[in-house]
Computed example of a mutant assay.
Amino acid sequence: MFELIIRRCLVVIPTLFLVSVIVFGMQKLLPGDPILALAGEDRDPQTIAYLQEKYRLNDPVITQYVSWLGRIMTGDFGVSIRTEKPVLELILQKLPVTLQLAAFAMIVALLIGVPAGIISAVRKGTLTDYSINIAALSGLSIPNFWLGILLILFVSVQWQLLPSSGYTSPFENLGQNIRTMIMPAFVLGTGLAGVLMRHTRSAMLGVLRSDYVRTARAKGLNEKTVILRHALRNALVPIITLTTLLFGELLAGAVLTEQIFTIPGFGKLIVDAVFTRDYAVVQGVVLCTAVGFILMNLLADILYIIVNPRLRDAT
């Protein structure tokens, strides 16, 4: 098992290198020139030449990439052209916000998706099963931005139950922090709940047809015990790995939700950076989200090896 985990970790290295090449290369393809924006309306040639020299834009692309990669390896993500702050400092400010939102959304997805999948599998072919499947498909089909706008309209504007936007640090006011996170977490979590429900239902249906479940029922065990202790324990093996992958997607895919609810996380940071052509920030945020997603994939592989005895014994 240890050797297989090491092999999985080694695969991450070339993947990270490829990601760094793509992130750096895509930045070169983005329209606009941040140097012209920094030079002001006059665009004095001496100022432009100074800025190009300062940010080493006159060097060959390969040289720029090697220099950029070397700085990244030491934790230097560059400096924001717009705010003159280190990119790493901006990332460390916004990352906890996105992580909290992703964690809340994952909790919502698990609380809704897993129980719904279990009930749907146990009551296969009934009205309950069909209703849960329709609800899951609705959660997958409804766009996040539309659901977010509806929640703001009804929950915040008409009913005045929760704040419509903004963010409060949990260290300043924990209650207000939770109130501001409920709606965006629900918006993100409902879509993921549909995915988890479908996978949980499929896994449970496969397990409920297995021999050991039939044996447990033949022994006269309580149906609740059969489902929760025997069936669910084995059905959760793929769900654990799926959860880690979905969490990785949340880190990279909460852009629209953060914009709608004005949450100062990664999504808002990268949108503002793109509009202001702050390419150092764009590179840093995209690279961090890509690395996070890759690491979550690695964690999913490791968890699958740990919780699946058959795969562990095969190695």
Score class of each variant (00 low, 15 high):
residue 111 L to H: 10
residue 113 G to N: 01
residue 113 G to H: 03
residue 114 V to Y: 00
residue 117 G to K: 02
residue 117 G to R: 01
residue 117 G to L: 02
residue 118 I to S: 08
residue 124 K to R: 15
residue 129 D to C: 09
residue 129 D to A: 09
residue 130 Y to M: 14
residue 131 S to L: 15
residue 133 N to K: 15
residue 133 N to D: 14
residue 136 A to Y: 03
residue 136 A to W: 02
residue 139 G to L: 03
residue 139 G to Y: 05
residue 139 G to R: 05
residue 140 L to Q: 12
residue 140 L to T: 12
residue 141 S to D: 09
residue 143 P to Q: 00
residue 145 F to R: 03
residue 148 G to Y: 00
residue 148 G to E: 00
residue 150 L to V: 11
residue 150 L to H: 10
residue 153 L to D: 04
residue 154 F to Y: 06
residue 157 V to N: 09
residue 157 V to Q: 13
residue 158 Q to W: 11
residue 158 Q to L: 08
residue 160 Q to P: 13
residue 163 P to A: 03
residue 165 S to H: 12
residue 165 S to A: 11
residue 167 Y to T: 10
residue 167 Y to L: 05
residue 168 T to A: 01
residue 172 E to S: 10
residue 172 E to H: 07
residue 175 G to I: 09
residue 179 R to W: 11
residue 183 M to C: 15
residue 190 T to E: 01
residue 192 L to I: 14
residue 193 A to C: 01
residue 193 A to G: 01
residue 194 G to N: 00
residue 195 V to D: 10
residue 196 L to E: 04
residue 198 R to L: 03
residue 198 R to F: 07
residue 198 R to H: 04
residue 203 A to T: 07
residue 207 V to R: 11
residue 212 Y to L: 07
residue 213 V to K: 08
residue 214 R to G: 14
residue 215 T to I: 15
residue 216 A to T: 05
residue 216 A to L: 07
residue 221 L to M: 15
residue 223 E to G: 09
residue 225 T to D: 14
residue 225 T to H: 15
residue 228 L to E: 10
residue 230 H to L: 08
residue 230 H to N: 08
residue 233 R to F: 05
residue 237 V to W: 02
residue 240 I to E: 05
residue 240 I to K: 09
residue 243 T to W: 01
